[in-house]
């Protein structure tokens, strides 16, 4: 039984990785990462023996910028970022620590923000894994095998998760290797000074990488699942991909826009970023971590159950 399931998953993985389009995604990812590393070489500051003076000067510039931007509502984020940098620099000065140069670990950590690209790929795979079988007409041949429809669908969903995991791993590895070549490695598992919970502290690099990526994984999985559900119900990958991407990009905006409405706290996007509780930067006031997790689970279960119900009930018809 386990061997059979392994075979089914293997089939799905082969169908994903035997196609050129999948490798184009990975190529795109590599180009993007390399671009990011080159950008980092040019923008990240490195410090000389005179680092204390350099930090003081940097802080002065940052304060100036904040003053310039004050009163401009669109520049709030820049002011926040600058504030964080000032506090981080302060931390180095107070503890008499020379700031580490920007290296591979830091680069991997920062690339957690690039998970949006992995999201995009997972959405595409999630939206096409069923509809492609219809497109090729192979869905018929798949469904006349001695497995329940639910098993076939569950294996396909599992394949999306495995693909996401592989792609994530690939991205981290590619980031680390590119970072190591272009930026250098600062130790095996260095402590990184970073801004967390409204405060600055020293944290273990690997721990931070795992935590940052895990938080970013939640919206990623939710959107890939949504794409999978829409495509299973409507057998249409275009609708599924566009809807998932639009929702992913506009989610925060929708929540902010309707922030004063009572229904807003039941919207999925008010809860996909759990890091808001760690950083004390909540989108809405009357939510909590446990409330958010509950809402996430409810949405997730609804997505999956509706795709299974529809898939089990429909006649398998190609060329409709």
């Amino acid at each position: 039984m386990i061997k059979n399931l392994f075979n089914l998953v293997l089939n799905e993985m082969l169908k994903i990785y035997k196609r050129k389009s999948t490798w184009m995604m990975y190529l795109f990812l590599v180009v993007f990462i390399a671009g990011g590393a080159i950008l980092a070489i040019n923008t990240q500051s490195s410090y000389s023996e005179n680092w204390k003076v350099e930090l003081e000067e940097e802080n002065k510039t940052l304060v100036q910028e904040i003053e310039e931007f004050s009163g401009m509502p669109g520049m709030q984020t820049i002011r926040d970022v600058n504030q964080e940098s000032i506090m981080t620099n302060q931390f180095y000065l107070e503890n008499d620590m020379k700031p580490m140069n920007y290296g591979a670990w830091q680069f991997v950590l920062d690339n957690a923000d690039m998970l949006i690209i992995v999201s995009l790929f997972s959405i595409i795979i999630g939206a096409t894994i069923i509809s492609d079988e219809y497109k090729w007409g192979t869905i018929k041949l798949l469904m006349v095998r001695p497995y329940s429809r639910s098993t076939i669908l569950a294996v396909k969903y599992l394949a999306i998760l495995i693909f996401t995991f592989f792609t994530l791993l690939f991205m981290q590895l590619a980031s680390f290797i590119t970072g190591a070549f272009l930026l250098g490695i600062e130790g095996i598992n260095p402590e990184i000074v970073a801004f967390r919970n409204g405060d600055v502290g020293q944290l273990n690099a690997i721990k931070m990488i795992i935590s940052n990526y895990s938080y970013n994984l939640i919206p990623l999985i939710m959107m890939a699942t949504l794409a999978f559900t829409i495509s299973t119900i409507f057998k249409n990958s275009t609708i599924a991909i566009s809807l998932a991407i639009v929702l992913m990009l506009s989610g925060n905006m929708i929540v902010t826009f309707f922030a004063d409405q009572s229904f807003t706290k039941y919207l999925l996007f008010a809860h996909t970023d759990l890091q808001q509780y760690q950083n004390n930067s909540m989108l809405l006031e009357d939510t909590s971590l446990s409330f958010s997790i509950t809402i996430l689970i409810i949405y997730y279960v609804i997505f999956l159950i509706s795709s299974f119900i529809v898939f089990n009930r429909k006649d398998i018809i190609v060329n409709e």
């Binding site: 293997l10 089939n11 035997k18 090729w136």
Partner: peptide, 20 residues
Amino acid sequence: DMYPFFSGKENLFHFARMYP
């Protein structure tokens, strides 16, 4: 209908894996 990106043999292996 078969998987266009698989060879004939890969298609057969794909379906063979679905039986004991």
